[in-house]
Nucleic acid binder design. Sequence first.
DNA 1: CTGAAAGCGCTAACAG
DNA 2: CTGTTAGCGCTTTCAG
Lengths: 336, 336
Amino acid sequence: MLDKRKIQMADIAKLAGVSTATVSRALNGSEAIRPETRERIQALAQAHQYTVHAGAKNLRSGENRTLGLVIPYRAHLPMQLTDPFFLAMMGQLADAMTAAQYDLLLSRVDADHLDECAALYDSGRVAGMVMVGQWDHHDQLNALAMRRVPLVVWGAMLPDQLYCSVGSDNFSGGFQATSHLIHKGCRQIAFLGDFKSGEAKFRFDGYCQALQTNSLALRQELCIQSPYTPLEAQQAMHAFCDKGIQIDGLFAASDLIAINAMGVLNARGLKVPDDIAVIGYDDVDASRHSFPPLSTIRQPLDLAARALLESLQEVMRGGQPASRQLSSELVVRTSA
Amino acid sequence: MLDKRKIQMADIAKLAGVSTATVSRALNGSEAIRPETRERIQALAQAHQYTVHAGAKNLRSGENRTLGLVIPYRAHLPMQLTDPFFLAMMGQLADAMTAAQYDLLLSRVDADHLDECAALYDSGRVAGMVMVGQWDHHDQLNALAMRRVPLVVWGAMLPDQLYCSVGSDNFSGGFQATSHLIHKGCRQIAFLGDFKSGEAKFRFDGYCQALQTNSLALRQELCIQSPYTPLEAQQAMHAFCDKGIQIDGLFAASDLIAINAMGVLNARGLKVPDDIAVIGYDDVDASRHSFPPLSTIRQPLDLAARALLESLQEVMRGGQPASRQLSSELVVRTSA
DNA sequence: CTGAAAGCGCTAACAG
DNA sequence: CTGTTAGCGCTTTCAG
């Protein structure tokens, strides 16, 4: 190893016969420098594959261009990340942040100790963070906000919320999905999902509203409690079918569980959409290719990612951007 | 904003009536300090939610505890990240790195300009990186290695490889999968995937070997070219079915496309596994819940993540760890 | 337009 | 056991 030491600004300065101050100016595109000097230095840097040391730069300039992406997990579950919706969201966020010249620090935090991620900010590793997860740890998030951690959350808009959130309009989505089923002639519509918490709760509220608007009764026995995980959703669906209750429509709180429910229905000899029409939520990539292709509610992920980033930037500036709900859109395919 | 300035070590030192050096020692668990002083300082820091500034610490100590996870993308495709296998891999890597006290910087790079990610290292943002992707940009990777960028790649082991890779034994996996099909009585076995490049190529080689070992002919018309994306896989499968060629077994290069192929088969009235036995690759979460549940080859992801990390650490120490192939394992479910 | 000098927040000798 | 001192690699006034 001849050159074990990494090349640094002083080396470039020496090579160019100028001071480090000049190199710094040249590399940061300062105006106060002779163009030909600037170009000469830039060329030199490139030739030697020199890149300004990010850490030193940040320390000196007080800036920090890395943002955190926090994905909570449940301690006892293998990983919640299984849902393709998250992956898509991550991808979009990564793209948006990259485009805005931010680095992206990925961090997993125990959902029961969300406060731990304050350390990411306190230690200066990130300038702010966006949290993506479909749990409602409302008070933990409020506590973080109170600690003045720059934070934006993907999720539902809740009352007494001290943090900024961006989400899609789950109530309207649930309403649209259910109304579509009703338009298609369904009268006995079941809901599959965790209707007690988080975003699914609002989708469920939309479901209830649509039933009421159309003078259909809300029947407790058609509300099938299920988490977002495939296996549990299948079990819940099997258990429901075992009861022998007749339905002609199913609204599932996510595409993933909708697809799994269709599987169960298939296995039991029920035809989708002829016997039972099914609609999901998210418009995940897989829903386009499921059998039959799944009707669903699309959440505008690209907009969402940009909105999250913009709001976060505003929070980091010290502002208090209002929480937002993006509108969602019905996507009709074969399943309903 | 009363306290707009973030609390820092000097503040804690003042509060404790000691020097910053003592605080530093206390917070880093140095032995050379009176236990009661250490505890007092630690308590103080906790009470004030003080955390050592990571950037300053790194700059001074010359250490860097953040690793890069680079996920190449194809410029013209929306995002390759769709495959659940990647997600699982990412999760495992995140866990392994977190457990080893590393931060994880997520970075997406154009697959045609992999060299760009050298900047991550040159700028000191990461101490090393692992690259995950199923493309074979062999020469670009070699160039990076030549630049002395600490790098480990998840993928196949290639000749003339200057970088360290960790992968599973794709040849053996392909051999096992095909042999299993043959044991089940299949005689006309098709291969679905990109048999010309990357890891799928080796899986295909295993397929050929298994055919040969069992005195079955390799038939060109049974080799169905397809990328890893669901839509394309379905199209390829449809096109194949249109030709009316009889098969009784199908080996797909990934679970994702296996599941999509089963969908096409279903839609065309063919029963899996009765008419056609299907086996996939990866043992993705979804394959357990597909219809019918998919037989597949499991890649030991947790081992893989740890192996990648260990190898990377070795590379960062200046070593040249040998590339490794982890053994893969047949998982028999209903589809074959 | 350019250089000298003073730190950003922290750690690591080196003395006490 | 603890404090003093000297920087890590860079940016940025402030003078020339």
